[in-house]
Design a protein around this nucleic acid. Structure first.
Length: 563
RNA sequence: GGCCGCGUGCCAGAGUGGACAAAUGGAGCGGAUUGCAAAUCCGCUGGGGUAACCCUUCGUCGGUUCGAAUCCGACCGCGGCCUCCA
């Protein structure tokens, strides 16, 4: 059965029916770059990456618009775009994004303190007062982490930077002819948005604020369930008075705020200021995935409008917290801009929302001390493959629980699969050929069935383990199958921590060969040669107390890892 | 209060009407290997029986059905959103 996914929009399991099954369009709401991304962020991005890799797998089958099955030919491509939000939005968002402190300024303050206390690497040259430098600093670190975790979009972006667009590069211009200003102008022209403030509402004067008029979009609330009548009830007392005065409806949301005093600001037809939080994704998804709508200049010249009901892109993903308001507002903007006048089109055919990650059973938070960034863990010697597997091996729609035990389990799985993948092919035929090829076929089938069923990753991993367990001495075909499967899971080829070797020890997990440890290893080797096992065991305990676990390996060497 | 996701064995986590005492990992136990470990490999791992088989279990309580972990209802618990957040 072809792939079915849970669609947040319809709240049901549905086949993914792409506009063009040979070339899918996929947009993921990426990170904000005010700080390093944590493992919860990466769990969500990795879930999107897993889906993307599955869509590209030769094992994956999709449904065409004609209702037939579409098996991936040699090149089913997925154009996957993930934005980077580097505009400094406000901290006080209860006020609708118009007040509070600029997040980029807060990040700058933090960087400044880190610099003073020497916590920043010496080679980092960054002016903490320059928001563009702060954003670039964290964006680079994000991309670096993402590549280490095998996020395909980040790997591809090395050759095609347009796959990871920066919000600040898509703001537009003073005339409102392209980018976000272009789309805002278009929304005003089509009657879906309005400008208020000094300089005559609706006129062309500076210093204005632009809002999206939610009542002009019938389908508002379809994604989140927060329809306008429900919102009005729920909103009682929550929305600040000062901010509402200019709005026609309390749920109208910000498209442009004129504020020349803002840290990051750009020219626009409504005055110098900054864009609202939702408009960037509407603009960048269309710009990269549907240039036919916008035309070569970014705005104008394109077809501009789709028949009602036709999706703009195939798949859109983001963390569950994005469902409302962010994605609800994106739908309103994009459909209003490109679909028929009372726009109700679905924007994306499939809405994919991974759930939040817990850590040791608890909500992750800095105050609880269970807050991890990917780089924290890499520094502790966790290898990217283990972290990736740990973050993808729980179904994307459950609250996964990240634990140190789980990380160890994942590491073992990775090691086991690697032994299989790196075994000399065909070394001794323990199993007869027909049983072996049956096992491989069964594994491929079970893996695909599981993945087709809303990305049932646990079932898929079980199929891999059964296969690897059954086949003691893999053939070249067996290894090829594991490779095909791993192109989806994406763990085997990730970078491994360097091993440091001395004459006696092999230091794993990026450990440096500490002379104190080497000396003890030599003492222990001498004791063992003299059959003084009491002493050799005592040395092992000593090392353990120092935080090192050792393991005698073939050839008289000792493998050293963190205890 | 509204909308949504989830609740399975010691743990993580599959299973969504019969082949289920329930995949796959882990932990535990036994064995091979090792001076001993670690790692690796093999077997066992709800209760009872030599066995065919029987009994109890899938948040709780009810219901539908010849039959339910799986469908329906109510309740309880966990998580998310209701204008920051992956």
């Amino acid at each position: 059965m072809p792939l079915r996914l849970y669609n947040t929009l319809t709240k049901s399991l549905q086949p993914l029916v792409p506009i063009d099954p040979a070339n899918l369009t996929f947009y993921t709401c990426g990170p904000t770059v005010y700080d390093d991304a944590h493992i919860g962020n990466f769990r969500s991005f990795l879930a999107a990456d897993l889906l993307r890799r599955w869509l590209e797998s030769p094992l994956c089958e999709l449904t065409t618009r004609e209702g037939t099955a579409h098996r991936a030919p040699a090149g089913r491509r997925v154009t996957h775009v993930m934005n980077i939000t580097d505009v400094g939005h406000m901290t006080d968002d209860a006020a609708g994004g118009e007040h509070g402190e600029d997040r980029m300024a807060v990040a700058g303050q933090r960087l400044l303190e880190a610099k003073k206390s020497g916590r920043l690497p010496a080679n980092v040259e960054i002016d903490p007062r320059n928001p563009h430098q702060i954003a670039a600093f964290y964006a680079d670190r994000f991309v670096e982490d993402a590549r280490r975790l095998g996020l395909k979009v980040a790997l591809e972006a090395q050759h095609d930077p347009t796959l990871m667009p920066r919000a600040t590069a898509n703001i537009g211009d003073a005339a409102g002819t392209r980018g976000m200003t272009g789309m805002i102008r278009r929304l005003i022209e089509r009657g879906h948005a309005y400008a208020v403030g000094p300089g005559d509402p609706g006129g062309g004067g500076g210093g204005q604020t632009v809002y999206f008029a939610v009542t002009t979009f019938d389908a508002y609330g379809a994604l989140s369930g927060n329809t306008l009548d429900r919102l009005r009830e729920g909103a009682g007392g929550r929305i600040s008075e000062q901010n509402q005065s200019g709005k026609r409806h309390p749920a109208d949301f910000l498209l442009w705020k004129s504020d020349p005093s803002h840290l990051m600001k750009w020219p626009s037809p409504w005055g110098e200021g900054y864009p609202g939080w939702h408009i960037e994704c509407s603009v960048m998804s269309a710009a990269r995935l549907r240039p036919d709508l916008l035309g070569p200049g970014g705005e104008g010249g394109g077809v501009g409008e789709l028949p009602d009901g036709q999706p703009i892109i195939d798949v859109h993903s983001g963390g569950e917290d994005n469902i409302f308001p962010h994605h609800e507002c994106e739908i309103a903007q994009s459909c209003a801009a490109f679909n028929s006048p009372r726009g109700s089109g679905p924007y994306a055919a499939m809405w994919f929302h991974p759930r939040f990650l817990l850590v040791e059973g608890d909500k992750m938070s800095k105050s609880k001390g269970n807050f991890f960034t990917a780089r924290d863990l890499f520094e502790k010697g966790v290898e990217p493959a283990a972290l990736r597997l740990e973050l993808i091996r729980t179904h994307y729609r459950s609250n996964a629980n990240f634990t140190m035990q789980g990380l160890t389990d994942s590491q073992r799985l990775v090691d086991r699969w690697r032994r299989f993948a790196e075994a000399a092919p065909g070394g001794g035929a323990a199993t007869n050929d027909s049983a072996r090829s049956e096992a491989a076929q069964e594994a491929a089938r079970a893996f695909a069935d599981a993945m087709h069923d809303d990305l049932n990753i646990a079932g898929a991993i079980a199929a891999v383990n059964t296969f690897v367990g059954f086949t003691a001495s893999p053939t070249a075909e067996d290894i090829q199958l594991l490779r095909t499967i791993d192109a989806v899971l994406g763990v085997l080829d990730l970078e491994r921590p360097a091993q440091a070797q001395t004459d006696i020890g092999v230091f794993l997990g990026g450990l440096a060969p500490d002379p104190a440890v080497v000396a003890r290893l030599e003492d222990r080797a001498a004791a063992r040669r003299g059959k003084d096992f009491k002493r050799s065991d005592a040395i092992r305990d000593e090392l353990l107390a120092m935080g090192y676990a050792i393991k005698d390996a073939a050839g008289g060497k000792v493998e050293v890892s963190r205890a």
